[in-house]
Design a protein around this nucleic acid. Structure first.
Lengths: 120, 120
DNA sequence: TGATTATATAAGCTAGAGCTGATACTGTTC
DNA sequence: GAACAGTATCAGCTCTAGCTTATATAATCA
């Protein structure tokens, strides 16, 4: 499932949507408005982006009347964060003991990430 | 430049190469061998992946005789890590004060990430 | 119930990513 | 300097992601 999340993040529109959702729930319409303003793409294109986010488990939807409220599903992003763990040592060579402890504790608490490749 | 790194990470072969490099330098040939074994793709395809990694600033090369030694360039991955910052609050709602301090300190020490979308 | 608003889906097009086989380049060795 | 090993590039192909226009679906309101 990790792979799916990485795919999701490759698209700037999808990334931007996640950024918007980081501040809280938004309706499809509200997202369309912003994205259309910034990227110039139409409503169906935004709707498709939202579908990808949903199906990859990066966003959740909740109907409210005729609208749909989208929210970020942070667990998916956490997988990316976990994948990055193996490189952290290299960009923070002088991480103090305490921070290391915190980081290691977090990692230890979750199952090993899907790290391996696969056939194409 | 963040965008480029996200693109890089979308490909499983490129991700796998970075994983291999996380343990230290490797020659193009060694990488080819592993990747060919795992994904079944040919040398030119691996070479192309390495080129993408280079050009996106995710890997560096160093010639040694007739071979080329590749290494990961962790700064690029750090940009991804920084982008994730905005979601961390949501997956660690009970982060204790100290860890929060560490995280905030790290974020504060680096320039604001390229967070905005752009035209397509 | 018919009109309206909010959102999703369908059909069709296009650009580009990623692959292969062939070949060029560069450094080493005899 | 010829042959070879290691790596990169080229030409050409195919497949898919993402776009648009048009349309379907679903909830609300008059």
């Amino acid at each position: 499932m990790t792979a799916l999340t990485f795919d999701v993040l490759a698209d700037p529109v999808r990334r931007r949507i996640l950024e918007l959702l980081a501040d809280g729930e938004l309706t499809s319409g509200a997202i369309c408005e912003v994205i259309h303003g910034e990227f110039g793409i139409t409503q169906p294109a935004v709707s498709a982006a939202l579908r990808v986010l949903r199906e990859a488990g990066c966003a959740t939807v909740r109907p409210e009347g005729t609208r749909r409220l989208y929210a970020v599903a942070p667990e998916s992003l956490r997988e990316v964060d976990d994948w990055l763990d193996r490189f952290r040592a290299q960009w923070s060579p002088r991480l103090d003991a305490l921070a290391t402890e915190v980081a290691r504790g977090r990692r230890a608490r979750r199952p090993p990430s899907d790290t391996q490749g696969g056939q194409r």
